[in-house]
Design a protein around this nucleic acid. Structure first.
Length: 266
DNA sequence: CTTATCGGCCA
DNA sequence: TGGCCGATAAG
């Protein structure tokens, strides 16, 4: 095999290599393909693939995949691209997962029901026994969530939620933060009702009696008044979201028909 | 099975 | 025309 050079790529984090191979046969002989290799040796053959892997760790907006260099001049093309993305978005097309501005793609972190076809005449269906059943969980796994905070796009840490007095944590870390994490996680990890720890023994010796499918908190009760209060909050939040979305939609539409501001002055 | 390479679609 | 990725040959 001809020894091809994998050269370092200064535009990427240390350890990343770039390789260019010339096609030597076929109709496309002479054309070249560029590949990148992660420090661990994984091969990448397109910018979207690279982008998906690096995530927000590296901004590839100005990265030219073919040359392997950062090209500040790419900003010009990006204007075109923004128009394009905005257009696609407005037309209900798929957003460009590669370079579109970050938008939450999931409708919900909660498990969504889907239609499941379990048998076709004459066909065999593979079943994964792990699926459906809940996986076992590590004791005190919630500890790993410690210190995680939600933040807005300016990195400003959002005010954390206040929990009702009726909720009390148990276990090695009974801070409000830990309690909030534990309950929030339990709500979307499990499809079973969340009751808290029902065994009184768990309070005295959690390491032995803990029910790991329940959050690290004492049994609690929820009053009708608390439910109504929560419904009001959800209603308000939805209304705010609706207003923000329509405002954003109008702004986008206006921007597209008018052209981007920078282009007008140029 | 995994990996390298070229075809070919689509912007 | 070139980026990207599927198909398929090769290992």
């Amino acid at each position: 095999m001809m020894e091809r050079k994998r050269s370092d790529c200064p535009a990427l984090p240390p350890g990343w290599k770039r390789e260019e191979v010339i096609r030597k046969s076929g109709l496309s002989a002479g054309k070249s393909d560029v590949y990148y290799y992660s420090p661990k040796g994984k091969k990448f053959r397109s910018k979207p693939q690279l982008s998906r892997y690096l995530g927000n760790a590296v901004d590839l907006a100005c990265f030219d995949f073919r040359t392997g260099k950062m090209m500040p001049g790419k900003l010009q093309k990006n204007k075109q691209k923004f128009r394009h993305d905005a257009l696609n978005l407005a037309k209900g097309g798929k957003p460009d997962l590669n370079t579109a501005l970050p938008i939450r793609q999931t409708a919900s972190i909660f498990k969504q029901p889907v239609t499941k076809v379990t048998s076709h005449p004459g066909n065999k269906v593979k079943t994964d026994p792990q699926r459906g059943a809940e996986q076992p969980r590590q004791l005190f796994w919630e500890k790993r969530l410690k210190g995680l905070r939600s933040s807005d796009i300016t990195e400003e840490v959002l005010r954390s939620m206040e929990l009702p007095k009726g909720l009390q944590g148990i276990g090695p870390d009974s801070s409000d933060d830990a309690l909030l994490s534990a309950i929030a996680s339990a709500l979307h990890m499990s499809s079973a009702p969340i009751t808290g720890q029902t065994s009184v023994a768990a309070e005295k010796n959690p390491a032995v009696w803990l029910n790991t499918s329940q959050p690290l908190c004492k049994t609690f009760t929820v009053t009708d008044e608390q439910i109504r209060e929560q419904e009001r909050k959800v209603y308000q939040a939805r209304k705010s979201l609706e207003e923000a979305l329509t405002a954003d939609g109008l702004a986008r539409a206006a921007e597209i028909t008018r052209g981007l501001p920078e282009e007008r002055t140029a």
